[in-house]
Design a protein around this nucleic acid. Structure first.
Lengths: 193, 193
DNA sequence: ACGTTCCGCTACGGTAACGTAGCGAAAGTA
DNA sequence: TACTTTCGCTACGTTACCGTAGCGGAACGT
């Protein structure tokens, strides 16, 4: 009877090596570049060892994405405009790096077709949206935003332009742009008209 | 000497069949699904015939995307808010359909890696952005918008949220959402503060 | 009607990745 | 130390797609 108290360090090692290689490959060559052969070659792990831990490249990829847990935090100083600018600027940096720039399109494309990836993508994105939603909820409570505002659309108006500029037009995401967005959206949202 | 007055109808037919099949395949299975074999199978065109007209799947795909010329028109009634709502609502519909929902992610992913597709994607997107930019330019001239406004960021604020909701959160794109965006952005942009 | 062009077909060799099986050696556990 | 587990390796057959060549027949232009 093998107890599951401490997993065999060999398993941990090979597992980690494969997942890391998978992450790198999807960032470099995209989705299609993640093949068992390629992962084996890059990680130094034997092909057969990978098959012992995952059924195929799909399961491997799901685990690889799930392992990527970078948390985004929105400050809460009381100054809504400054907090949003700071948080979105951090998002902008993330989008500029490999995670946002290379992983994201691959993931969106995959999510559009494979339901397994769709669910993974959903939880991935939801987790990253939560800090912003929390900060906005707090702003409504403290009276910084009107109570009848649509939070979902508001979030889309804040984050959407950044993704748009990164994915579609490949324009820069400097501080000026971020602050312009925050100012416009906040001012446009305050006046109930 | 073969004059190029009227191209052989056989070429036209096979060419069209292959391009159509390629478009369908990329919409259904994404980028990787477009293989010469698959295009041949779906179109009924012989594999060798395809190789006679294109070097490989890349060239075929480039032509397939280029052949897709759906023009988006922004109305110009003088009422900026109404015009933007109408145009963006049309964009929302496009995003809801196959073109936006399925083709777009595949294209973005491809553009992120293959420079050839990057350029294709750029001209594709630029063409679609032009009507909006033109309408906004006109609005600046007519005094509906301040002259010192940043058009690029403004466009991102208008269109970005729609792409965001479609690609990331898979939320609906109804008239209410579109109008909320337009109202917020216009009001937030008018006050120079 | 005639020569030309294009198409469909079959066939070929080559590459990449798949997924499985079995064996000895190394690394873990007790 | 004795055992169990995992690993790396080699080997094998299979699938999918690649890209090219050549041939006969059909479609085309004049």
């Amino acid at each position: 009877m093998t107890s599951s108290s401490t997993p065999d360090p060999r398993v941990v090692r090979s597992r980690h090596a494969a997942l890391t290689a998978a992450q790198e490959l999807v960032a470099e060559y995209g989705f299609r570049g993640v093949t068992i052969e390629a992962v084996a070659a890059r990680s130094g792990i034997a092909r057969t060892t990978i098959y012992r831990q995952w059924r195929g490249s799909n399961e491997l990829l799901v685990d690889a994405f799930a392992a990527d847990k970078c948390a985004v935090v929105f400050p809460n100083t009381g100054d809504l405009r400054a907090d949003l600018s700071a948080g979105l600027l951090e998002l902008a940096d993330t989008l500029g790096g490999n995670d946002g720039g290379r992983l994201l399109p691959a993931m969106l494309e995959a999510a559009e077709r494979d339901p397994e990836f769709a669910q993974l993508s959903k939880s991935f994105i939801d987790a990253r949206r939560k800090p912003l939603r929390d900060r906005l909820t707090q702003a409504v409570r403290s009276g910084e935003l009107p109570t009848d505002i649509d939070l979902e659309t508001l979030m889309a108006m804040l984050a959407g332009p950044l993704f748009y500029r990164r994915l579609l037009t490949h324009q820069g995401l400097g501080r000026a742009v971020v602050e312009r967005i925050v100012r416009t959206v906040i001012e446009g949202s305050s006046s109930t008209s």
